[in-house]
């Protein structure tokens, strides 16, 4: 009994497990940064979509529409790779000489000097930006709809008080928009949380990758077989972890919705 507890304590606190616990930070950072960027891109997209200038309006409309026809994984993989190659292409156009290009045997980059090595922090930022871009398109639709749900009388009243257009926008329109946008934004946030499970596709040693490594049959010469294939147990832990995060987010969004909806007469809050 006591030996069992001692075994589990030492097993769950060995170096690999501690690394696994530490790797939760990548998931959390990607979710928070991606969520914040999604709101920013969403606000930008909604502004573009509302623009009076035709080309800008088209950009906003296409941005919010295209992501719905294409899977999020594709953008998630494509954007970091494309960004990396874009930078390398630019560097190559500055530093590469014909001799360097002739010496290069690999198809990319054009010359070895233009190679840009990306580590975990760089990939994490790129992954967050692509999460923001993809789910920003969803947020664009949500915010665009919410902006139109704000009662026209509120804006008229603000104008009647002599507020300038930007004052009306920031003090009344966007302030009141959140109440209508929150249910949709909570949906987008849930999608972002679930998309953070894909970080391992971008060479980030995240919780999924570590679960796979830790669960694989573990053989030590001194001890023998520590455990056979335990991967499903580790994935079950992640499964429960994501359900818990979803549950917590739901509670948090309920609380925020109630707080933001104070003093506003509408059916948007319960």
């Amino acid at each position: 009994m006591f030996d069992d507890i001692a075994f589990w304590v030492s097993y769950l606190t060995n170096g690999k497990h501690l690394t696994w616990y530490a790797s939760f930070q990548f998931t959390i950072i990607a979710a928070l940064l991606g969520g914040a960027l999604a709101v920013i891109f969403g606000l930008t997209g909604a502004t573009l979509k509302n623009s009076r200038f035709w080309p800008l309006r088209m950009i906003g409309t296409v941005y919010s529409a295209i992501v719905r026809g294409v899977p999020d994984v594709l953008f998630f993989l494509f954007f970091p790779l494309a960004f990396e190659q874009g930078v390398e292409w630019f560097v190559a156009s500055q530093v590469c000489t014909p001799e360097m290009i002739a010496a290069q045997s690999a198809p990319w980059p054009p010359c070895k000097e233009a190679n840009w090595f990306l580590g975990t922090p760089e990939y994490l930022i790129l992954a967050s930006v692509s999460l923001g871009l993809v789910y920003g398109a969803f947020a664009t639709n949500v915010i665009h709809g919410a902006m139109r749900s704000v009662p026209a009388g509120q804006l008229e009243a603000a104008r009647a008080y002599g507020m300038s257009e930007s004052q009306v926008l920031w003090r009344v329109h966007i302030r009141q928009m959140w109440v209508y946008a929150l249910p949709g934004l909570s949906n987008v946030w849930m999608l972002i949380i679930k998309a953070t499970s894909l970080l391992s596709l971008l060479q980030i040693a995240d919780i999924v990758l570590w679960a796979d490594r830790l669960g694989a049959p573990n053989f030590l010469p001194t001890v023998g077989l520590v455990h056979d294939d335990w991967r499903w147990r580790y994935y079950l832990v992640l499964f429960v972890f994501y359900i818990l995060v979803t549950w917590l987010s739901e509670r948090a969004f309920d609380a925020i919705t109630r707080r933001v909806g104070r003093g506003i007469l509408s059916e948007a809050h319960g």
């Binding site: 679930k194 294939d229 499903w232 499964f239 359900i243």
Partner: peptide, 21 residues
């Protein structure tokens, strides 16, 4: 709730490794 609250990616891994074991 469970299947909407967790990523499909994890569900794939979980069921596949369960089938493997």
């Amino acid at each position: 709730y469970a299947f909407r609250g967790s990523p499909l990616f994890i569900q794939f891994f979980m069921f596949y490794s369960l089938a493997l074991s």
